[in-house]
Nucleic acid binder design. Sequence first.
DNA 1: CTTATATTTCGATAATAATGGAAATATGGA
DNA 2: TCCATATTTCCATTATTATCGAAATATAAG
Lengths: 123, 123
Amino acid sequence: MELLNAAEYLAALGHESRLSIFRLLVQAGEEGLSAGVIGEQLGLAPATLSFHLSHLARTGLIFGRQQSRFIFYSVDYAVIDTLFAFLLEDCCQGKACLPKTGAVGGAKSRRRMVRAGAAGRPA
Amino acid sequence: MELLNAAEYLAALGHESRLSIFRLLVQAGEEGLSAGVIGEQLGLAPATLSFHLSHLARTGLIFGRQQSRFIFYSVDYAVIDTLFAFLLEDCCQGKACLPKTGAVGGAKSRRRMVRAGAAGRPA
DNA sequence: CTTATATTTCGATAATAATGGAAATATGGA
DNA sequence: TCCATATTTCCATTATTATCGAAATATAAG
């Protein structure tokens, strides 16, 4: 994954409506949801919804399949997986930085096992 | 994590320069990097760099600690961890959707074990 | 106290993104 | 064919974000 692709994915998700759409689709699974159902759930005007759906689809986070008069959108889980790995590539100098996700970014080197200084969070 | 917070984190990461900064800091670990070093690595004008650093810090993805004349920025790994979990909350209807990250979103219910239809990716 | 270095704030400008009404397109059913 | 439904495209408007020079602030060193 290239940096610019990753930034596009993140920017696509970094909007209230699109993130809501994405999460609905994550929960809907492979089957997906039709545009109409999504719009109904989120109360978005058709044009606005379509704008966000095509934004998400153009970047590659979701894809649609036509079925009769409806278009069912689903998330591409593989893209998310790759995105997560990219974000934490060579992370945390080999330490376990992510309790919930476990070993995520380990795709590459994990070099630079340097002793780190204090890093408490100030005001 | 609230939806709006998550959207802010993602929007913050959804910009070439900020994502570059974030990844530098991920790789730098707890010790972090000074603003100057970051700016040098990425070739950003001081004002631009500062704009992005405070954007990232304001949202909470990174934090700075002053040390002598320098300010060292580091990522807050816990926030990222929570963000990943939020993105995949109740994901994929119990299936293993994320090979690299393993069981990520499992914080909540994992209900709706519905049989899903085909979802091949069309043009 | 003066100078040098590190970083931020200010302010103006430029660029990009979001919104939604209205019209267009596509699909299926009567 | 004609109508209803689902979704998208077009277009204009509004809102938000990014950029960076110049000035301000902060910290340390001579």
